[in-house]
Design a protein around this nucleic acid. Structure first.
Lengths: 141, 141
DNA sequence: ATATCTGCAAATCGTTTGCATGGAA
DNA sequence: TTCCATGCAAACGATTTGCAGATAT
């Protein structure tokens, strides 16, 4: 998670301009754990930035991903989700209520190095998704 | 991987009819390691089944997934990929040429059980994707 | 000053749906 | 005979694009 100043610096370092929209989107993402879609980000920010368009959300998250400030999740739904936590972690999705939660994980370096040897790939990233039923939904049968 | 007879049995057991299209799609998937998209499946089968429509491919893979004959991959592209190998394994994608390859993995049961304890989820499945550059693309710089 | 970004609307494209016909049980 | 499946075309919805005006540097 970056402060607004750190994000601004990172944007400038990458030749991107610092705009209120980009700051607002990153700020919103860094304050939630719900891994929102572009639509959700758009709706959350609409009261604060009534003029902001959905296209700007898409363009902004693309930039934020490119400078490694956020990551994009594809949990198999019809839309992507965005996550300001770029530290190594897994995600677990409840197939009943649809929530996507973070799961801390141990260092994957040994596994990745082992796979690099086995596959001869240079590995630059990974995504790990688990699927199941969350405790809340289990209680409701 | 199932034989045509085993697949037919599994379809009937699940109240689904056995059609040439479903058999052909499963057969094609079980003979490739390239994890094709619906479009690719459609184009591969077009010479054999000129009347087959893309919509039928989509409807068929949905059925095949529902009866657990195949799995659906979301590697973060614009379209889904399909895999007749439903045994536990990882996928690794080359960000340069786009190929998606299988990676065998050790039994995940200990990890999954550990996560179930930690998250209180009932875990029913998982998807693990690695991203990087494949040996062939590394050679071409 | 000028290159980049925003907001709008239209375009794109993977996927889904409705419906009449055809085929499996 | 009775559903269910197919094929076609139209619909859908998430994302992208083009462009004119606005803004960051």
């Amino acid at each position: 998670m970056l402060s607004a100043i750190e994000l601004a610096t990172k944007l400038r370092e990458n030749g991107c301009k610092v705009t209120p929209q980009r700051l607002a989107i990153y700020d919103m993402l860094s304050k939630t754990t719900e891994h929102p879609t572009a639509e959700t980000i758009y709706n959350k920010l609409k009261p604060l930035y009534p003029a902001m368009s959905l296209a700007t959300v898409y363009k902004s998250v693309e930039v934020l991903e490119k400078i490694d400030a956020i990551q994009v999740l594809n949990t198999g739904e019809d839309s992507f989700r965005y996550d300001a936590n770029v530290a190594q972690h897994f995600h677990i999705k409840c197939m009943h209520c649809g929530r996507v939660m973070d799961v801390p994980c141990q260092d994957l370096k040994p596994l990745v190095e082992n796979l690099e040897k086995k596959t001869q790939f240079t590995i630059t990233g990974q995504q790990v998704y688990f699927y199941g039923i969350c405790p809340d939904c289990q209680k409701q049968h």
